[in-house]
Design a protein around this nucleic acid. Structure first.
Lengths: 218, 218
DNA sequence: TAGATTGTTAATCGATTAACAATC
DNA sequence: TAGATTGTTAATCGATTAACAATC
């Protein structure tokens, strides 16, 4: 493995990389050949030096006065995040959010392929949601081991999340993208990332409250 | 406004408050009267001192050896975030994600009421999605000003987000919960919070790549 | 050349952690 | 009382920002 792919960026940096990637791909599709951190920073309301530091973890080198080669930069970020290769995934819990994610073409852009969805509701089994087959939950472990799936998207109710994760981890899942509002406790050989929509709503609500409180007449 | 509601917690703290609130409400519903930071920290894989620091911004005081009063703590966090009062909202963009959010009862738990949804698709106008009426997008500005709506949830395509936000801000919207993968540029009298699902996917993908790379046989 | 941009090194800032007195 | 927990103050750690030489 090349040295620069070993560098571990801290979470704030990693979280910004997908936003850079999105913009740079747009520029590429518009025919641009180079991009500067000054420009990216302006679009994202960041300091140019932050963008430069963030990009440096991917090992990319730019050219003074010109910036970074757009094609190289896309490749560098994708390689760094592991988005350069197709990864198979399953989704568990075909409710509102699960259905929405199955219909979200964005995942495809990042080469994440949801091969199957699972649900305990027998009415869903055998159906196809946004072109993804839905199977009974019982069959998930054998599907995972048969196809060597490493990534699972969890959109199950909070009460079920830990048990579902335990079962899938035993079947071979190594990474959970967890949309259930529960912190998963897993062995060190498995990684997880929790999406918490209410965290964002909390930040926004506080901002709004402080904004309104700061205004005359309050 | 009481002094402690003026204290502005930093973003990492604020983001953790909703997770505390969720757990504490569960405890309350189980009949618990007190909770310690030691206990909350264990459930969330955090240090107790972090939890204590985070809670202190709400102005709550605990009792040594006992912890915090569960009812008081729920009230303190809700008041701090502005979740103690019902807030009206609209949603713009009734696609997969917009539909999922309309069906998400979680919003109701935080007293966020989506009064109407809007879409440019004429086939949707007049329909009702998860008990929320859908109207033509053109009518959004007048709805916002007529009802004094301050918060808007944006689930529109990236290409439309900035224009939609500009229009709504002019009509009186003060806060945007933005699910479009675009950084909004808004006047200082308006706040926004961007949800970026791909940021989380990036973090998870990197964790997985590093996990696999660290294993024997790689 | 002049000026813009990269990329390094050092300084600052803020969040996390440690230490510990207070208290129930 | 002994022991667990709160809450403050100080220390550490890590991320952001500043300064600036290198370079195209």
């Amino acid at each position: 493995m090349p040295q620069h792919l070993r560098r571990v960026a801290k979470q704030p940096s990693v979280q910004r990389l997908p936003a850079y990637l999105r913009l740079i791909k747009e520029l590429r599709d518009l025919g641009e050949e180079a991009v500067s951190t000054t420009y990216l920073a302006e679009l994202l309301d960041l300091q140019p030096i932050i963008v430069r530091k963030d990009l440096s973890v991917t090992g990319i080198v730019g050219r003074p006065r010109i910036g970074y080669d757009v094609g190289e930069l896309v490749a560098a970020i994708e390689t760094y995040l592991g988005w350069d290769q197709v990864r198979d995934a399953i989704l568990v819990g075909v409710g509102h959010l699960g259905t929405a994610l199955l219909g979200y073409h964005g995942l495809d852009d990042y080469r994440l392929r949801v091969r199957a969805a699972f649900d305990t509701n027998p009415a869903l089994a055998g159906q196809s949601v946004h072109n993804c087959p839905v199977y009974p939950w019982d069959t998930a472990p054998s599907f995972v081991s048969a196809h060597g799936i490493q990534l699972a998207i969890l959109t199950v109710p909070a009460s079920a999340a830990q048990a579902v994760a335990d079962t899938l981890a035993a079947a071979g899942i190594r990474a959970f993208w967890n949309f259930s509002p529960v912190k998963l406790h897993l062995p060190p050989s498995v990684v997880a990332h929790q999406e918490d929509l209410t965290a964002g709503l909390g930040v926004l609500s506080l901002k709004l409250r402080l904004l309104l409180a700061s205004e005359p007449g309050e």
